[in-house]
């Protein structure tokens, strides 16, 4: 039953994507899209992660929207940060790779955290090993060994919303 539900979900996502991309309601293109959606959902079994049906709740979507809004704010800030560092004649950078411990549990949440960290001011995720994120930081703190402060600065701002979306 669960697998059937996931297949139907895969199929409907592919079909909606097809309708958006062709943007016409001809009989021909709709029928072709339906056939292709069935075929691809059968071939690409397991397109989505297993626990994706948990995302059908308005509360999670609300927190996803909150996450997107805060992400947009930090992306704009990150761009002005890069603008300042690149155009400054002395290149004010102090780079290094630091370690961040995340409290998020699921893989999807960690992946989204890594992408969000990459788009925010001065940080770039390099690798995730278990609960540790390795982050290249363009302007490292004075106190290198204080992992908690570094975690609060880099990951803390997204963990609040991402935990409510995925965990």
């Amino acid at each position: 039953m669960e697998t059937l539900k996931r297949r139907l979900l895969d199929m409907s996502i592919i079909f909606v994507l097809w309708l958006l991309l062709t943007w016409s309601l001809d009989v021909q293109s709709v029928v072709a899209g339906a056939i292709l959606a069935v075929l691809f959902a059968l071939v690409l079994s397991g397109l989505l992660p297993a626990r994706v049906t948990r995302l059908f709740s308005p509360v999670r979507w609300f927190w996803a929207l909150m996450h997107l809004i805060s992400l947009a704010f930090w992306i704009v800030l990150a761009n002005f940060d890069v603008l300042y560092r690149v155009l400054h004649p002395n290149l004010p950078i102090r780079p290094g790779i630091v370690r961040v411990k995340t409290t998020l549990k699921s893989d999807e949440a960690k992946a989204f955290l890594a992408n969000s960290i990459t788009l925010t001011p001065g940080t770039l995720t390099i690798d995730i090993i278990d609960d540790w994120l390795y982050v290249h930081w363009i302007n490292v703190h004075e106190n290198l060994e204080d992992t908690e402060a570094i975690t609060r600065d880099i990951a803390g701002r997204f963990e609040v919303t991402l935990r409510r979306v995925f965990d």
Partner: peptide, 8 residues
């Protein structure tokens, strides 16, 4: 000029 490389 990098300060630290925890990954390495």
């Amino acid at each position: 000029g990098s300060v630290v490389d925890k990954y390495k």
